[in-house]
Design a protein around this nucleic acid. Structure first.
Lengths: 301, 301
DNA sequence: CATCGTATGTGCGATACCGCACATATTAAG
DNA sequence: CTTAATATGTGCGGTATCGCACATACGATG
């Protein structure tokens, strides 16, 4: 596959990269060695691959090639090299800055976004003041399914909740791409389904479960997507996500803290005991995660 | 609606049926006259058309032509005649019986359904006992978007909430049709978007608004789809829809009744004052309805 | 250092909703 | 008619959450 034809002085560089099933094989001829890794663990694998003991050539070049050929977004990485190459020229990388509005309700969606890292929250609201998070998007998904579905205007609010980067693409380019590329359509269709499930389950969860459980669920979902045990987050922000008073967040967080599940001080939140946090969270977390995992399984082929 | 004059008689059945915009033109050649009516009032119009005083030929033939050419489901009727004819052989009409499960979560979806009348509720649940309605489907939509999106198993519970009839179609047939028919795909895509909006807005509504407002909203949405002022519905059932105790439904209904907005006795519910009921309902009703109307506008072309 | 804005902790009364218990009305079945 | 099953109305104490008020802590900025 792809751009390994680079004349980059790869005396010791991989000569061929072939995608087989869900894994990617890299063959580094001079050493006669090769590496296989699961694209689901791309980051991990790259680190491994770049360990000096294994490879002794220019790490940055290799990394760049990797990033070009296998984007760290599940939707894009599920595409075969042909599909992705066609998209590639339309994509640009942009930073996701905390608190930035990606979409405002009613606004024309100029771009769609495929996060590589960071998190974007999808919010619904009643009477402008009271907001509620209905969905979370990380590198497993995209923001802009409205565009994919043929609607110009965003219907809900999309907000950067955790810093990172994303590919973005003009809406028109996406629509054109979708029109011609069955594979792309199929992958995004599956994602849309997964998102609907997430929204539905979250709705029931918000109705039935108490704040502390929901906070636990939210933290777990965030951690899954941030792949970090620590993040900065204000109570005010959390209150908008969970749809409760800020004071209630304060109380719920104190509850989790007293059980040593998290430590939370002035916006610096870190998860201390993931296992027990899962117990505190309602089953909804598992339900959503299962669907999410199934979706990843189905979309990787 | 419109130019249906009583005096005009159909010596013969309409010779051509042409769709223009959102209206349908029927040309009855012998008289050189034609009729235009809004497909939104199709049922009404057909009844009117088939009044003995107006028509003196074989009513069943005419009715069949109508049903073949303009199904009373917005998704199907948005298709041009070519698209629809291709689907037609795959469709069969089935009754929607009250209380029947269309989908159970986790179950393989054998069929998809395009209601012509009646209502199907989409339910989400936590721990089997506590359910919550996340979406309502009437003749504006379909049940089985999971199939459309490429997923075999249903993710949520779909339940007949109001009797009626629906077209149904094998899932495989839908998938094949979607693959080849851009127009069909486009229409259902728009519907999926509309449904996502509905689910999201409902989620926020359930979080923020009190039971009486939500009950009012629910009744309005149901009335829109049943096109009837009266329906049978138990408190137990309503409690599952709104995700509250049955007793709470009793209280909320009593509230509406004391203001003479509805009359409700032992399952027989009738809406007395729609206007004021809309005032009691939260703004969510309007928001959802607006999106729903916009969707209908966009999908009719 | 002083100041100010922002984030956080806490307490208290009000309220919406829950859970349960029980009475009553209606329909269905024997 | 009797009985059972189902649907509905009502009351009461408990609890989660709200709304508001206020005290406190921290960070940025001058």
């Amino acid at each position: 596959m792809s751009g390994f034809s680079e004349k980059t002085s790869f005396a010791k560089a991989p000569e061929t990269v072939a995608k087989t099933g869900i894994s990617v094989m890299i063959k580094a001829v001079p050493q006669g060695s090769f590496f296989i890794f699961d694209i689901r663990h791309l980051e991990l694998s790259i680190k491994h691959l770049l360990m000096p003991s294994a490879v002794n050539h220019d790490a940055t070049v290799l990394r760049r090639i990797f990033q070009m050929s296998i984007p760290n977004n599940r939707l894009l990485s599920a595409l075969d090299s042909g599909s992705f190459r066609k998209l590639h020229s339309k994509l640009e990388t942009v930073p996701l800055e905390f608190g930035k509005d990606i979409y405002q309700p009613g606004e024309i969606s100029t771009f769609v976004y495929f996060p590589e890292s960071g998190i974007i929250s999808l919010l619904s609201s009643v009477e402008t003041d009271s907001t509620l998070e209905v969905g979370i998007v990380g590198n497993e998904g995209m923001v802009g399914i409205g565009v994919f579905l043929g609607v110009e205007k965003a219907n809900n609010h999309a907000l950067v909740q955790g810093e990172g980067t994303a590919f973005r693409m003009r809406s028109a380019d996406l629509q054109a791409a979708v029109e011609n590329d069955n594979q792309l359509r199929r992958v995004i269709n599956l994602y849309v389904h997964s998102l609907i499930t997430q929204i539905s389950q979250t709705a029931a969860c918000n109705r039935y479960h108490d704040i502390e459980s929901r906070l636990a669920r939210w933290l777990l979902m965030t951690q899954d997507r941030m792949r970090s045990d620590e993040f900065r987050i204000t109570q005010e922000f959390l209150s908008n996500m969970l749809g409760v008073r800020r004071e209630a967040v304060s109380k719920a967080a104190a509850g989790l803290q007293s059980n040593r599940l998290i430590s939370y001080s002035r916006g610096n939140l870190s998860i201390l005991n993931r296992k027990d946090l899962e117990k505190t969270a309602c089953r909804c977390y598992r339900v959503i995660k299962k669907d999410y995992d199934d979706f990843l399984k189905e979309s990787a082929f």
